[in-house]
Design a protein around this nucleic acid. Structure first.
Lengths: 141, 141
DNA sequence: CTGATCCTTGCGACTGAGTCTCATTATATT
DNA sequence: AATATAATGAGACTCAGTCGCAAGGATCAG
């Protein structure tokens, strides 16, 4: 049993929700996929594997996974929300190329620290943040 | 003639576009409004003032104003994009309260500087950025 | 075992922000 | 003033995401 299974199971138990085959399939697929994906891509992946699944269930379960802290949701500039799993992927922010659409991950502890200082100064309790820098990537500039 | 009129006029002239009464009304209203607003709010404000205007024209003109650098568009967590005019409003980022929805503006030159350093390091040409910190504001925590 | 309760699913209808089409009208240019 | 080109409004359309609901499980009490 993987770590993410344990976490999801306790999360569900705590809320008196059930671990169904659909939810397990979604969890597994999310953790097998090591890149950004959107909800409908996830539907397609699961359908091509084996199982029938409805879009509604995928959307509902992604919400649960976000609430459980196993998945993060982002808007990378396109219309659709994209998701990625959290375990094994440290927090990061994005440089987004407005020409080719590429999203480059970066992580800067100092920026995070300064963000925390801003919050302290304004008596704001930070929970999450999203920092996106839009521009031109190396190959498009 | 205000500064924003001049800028918008030259922007339009350069692109061989025309300054119509509708565009003027939108520009004026945007610069009279000293808070965030969304496209449909803007439609309502203009309609309650005097003029007939269509949603399509407002959406189209807001895009132009953004391209002209007179207006910025943001997603503050809700479904709708919100806008604000730029002149007289320095760049800032937001703390967004997930309980009451309030958006608190802040500005930290040091964070901006570090962002620039990240971009330099990765050979990325930054054009704009969006930093949003989600959590609980002073009165909701 | 039986029934009551409650959660989940899939389907398709629905929502709502934003975009597009197109016939008509207005602006800028010569 | 004539011409060329752009803009407008109305409503149809798109598309991601949500919702309602009937049917299908689990789970628990007795």
């Amino acid at each position: 049993m993987t770590k993410e299974h344990d976490i999801f199971k306790s999360f569900l138990a705590e809320k008196r929700l059930k671990l169904t085959p659909q939810r397990r399939a979604i969890l597994d697929t999310v953790f097998e996929t090591h890149r950004h994906f959107d909800a409908d891509e996830l539907v397609e992946i699961i359908r091509h594997k084996e199982k029938r699944i409805s879009r509604a269930t995928v959307y509902r379960t992604l919400d649960l996974l976000v609430k459980a802290g196993l998945v993060t949701a982002m808007e990378l500039g396109e219309a659709r929300k994209v998701y990625e799993h959290v375990i094994g992927h440290k927090h990061h922010d994005h440089l987004i190329c407005m020409k080719c659409g590429r999203a480059i991950e970066f992580d800067d502890g100092f920026i995070e620290l300064l963000q925390q200082k801003v919050c302290d100064r304004l008596n704001f309790e930070a929970q999450t943040h999203s920092l996106r820098i839009f521009g031109r990537c190396e190959s498009c500039r």
